[in-house]
Amino acid sequence: MKKILLVLLVIIAVSCKNEAKKEIKKETIVAVKKEVFPTELGKVFEAHGGIDKWRKVKTLSFTKEDEVHTSDMNSRKILVNSPKYSLGFDGNEIWSLEEEKGSLKRDPAFYYNLYFYFYAMPFVLADDGIIYEKVADFVFEGINYPGYKISYKANVGTSPDDNYIVYYNAKTYQMEWLAYTVTFRTKSPVDNYKLIKYNAWENVNGFVLPKQITWYAKDKDDVYGPTTKIVDFKSPLASQAQLADSFFDKPIQ
C-alpha cells in the first residue's frame, strides 16, 4: 500500500506543478460546446467549471476519513485505500483486500464507486446513457430549488434503475441538493429517495467540487432536517496526468 500511495503523491506533485492554481414537461435543449443537455442543466455544469474542461481530467482523487479514493476518469477504474483495507475496480473485476478480517464492513461491489458519484457531482450527471426530465421544484425553508431527474437507459451501469435528482440555485445555478434512490440490492425501481445537502464547495483546479455533504431526513412532522451523517472531502485532486493501469490492480500478497 505504501507503493500505491507513493505513486499517487508523484501524480499530485506533477499536477500541482503543471495546472493553474411530479411535473414533467418538454425541455429546450442547449449545446454546451460539443455536448447537448437541457438548458438549465447545461448552466449548472458551466457554474461548476464546464463540461469541456471536465472531459480533460484523467485522474480524480479525494480523501474521506482515512480512505483515499482515486479514479481514472476515462476507464472509471477506482482504488479505495485505507490503513486496514483496500478495494477497487481494475477494469475487469471488483476486488477487495483486508489486512484485518472484518475491517471492511461493506460490500465492495456497492461501495467501491459510491463516494466517487457523490464527489463528482454534478459532472457525473453528464455520463452516457442518461435520460433527463424536468421535475417540480424542491422547496426548503421557503426557497425554491429547480431540479432535473436523471435516469438511465436499460443495461447502463451496475444499477440502471437508480435515479438521481439534482436541485440547484435558481440564480447562480450552483448545485445545492441531491436526491437519489438505491436499487443495488432490490434490482428494481423504488420511489424512496434519500436526500443530501451539499453544504460547502471548493475550487479544485478551476472546478467547483464538494467539500462537505450532509444527509437530511424527515421528522415526525414531515419536515426535512439534517442527520448526523456528515462527510468531509479532503486533499482534492483533479488532474490531467494519468496513472498507470497497474495502479488499480489488486496488490499481490
Rank of each mutant, 00 (worst) to 15 (best):
A200H: 10
S239G: 09
S75R: 11
D221S: 12
D66Q: 13
L97Y: 15
D219P: 05
P236D: 04
S75W: 00
L8G: 05
G206H: 03
I11T: 14
A170G: 02
M175P: 00
Y145T: 04
N81T: 04
G88H: 01
T63N: 07
T186I: 10
G102Q: 07
D52L: 04
W177C: 06
W215Y: 12
A154T: 11
T186W: 04
A126W: 01
A179H: 12
T172P: 06
F37K: 05
A20I: 13
V57E: 00
E23F: 08
N113K: 12
G91P: 07
K3N: 12
I78E: 09
T70I: 09
R185Y: 15
D66W: 04
L114D: 07
V139K: 13
A244K: 14
A120H: 02
S188V: 04
L5Y: 11
Y168W: 08
H48D: 01
N192K: 14
L237I: 12
T181V: 08
Y198W: 05
I150C: 08
I131G: 01
E65S: 14
K33W: 02
K33C: 00
V32A: 01
K26L: 06
R55M: 08
K171N: 13
I29R: 14
N205P: 00
Q240G: 00
S15Q: 03
K194Y: 09
S103N: 08
Y152Q: 14
I94H: 03
N163V: 08
I150V: 12
L237C: 10
S235F: 11
K53D: 02
D221C: 00
T186E: 15
V204R: 00
V208T: 08
R106H: 09
Y145I: 04
D162C: 03
F140E: 12
K220Q: 12
D127G: 08
V36F: 08
K22Y: 05
V10D: 01
V156G: 00
I131Q: 13
K34L: 07
V36C: 07
K3D: 13
L104R: 09
R185M: 10
G91L: 06
K229R: 14
S235A: 09
R106S: 12
D161G: 00
T59W: 03
G147Y: 02
K56T: 08
S246R: 10
E46D: 11
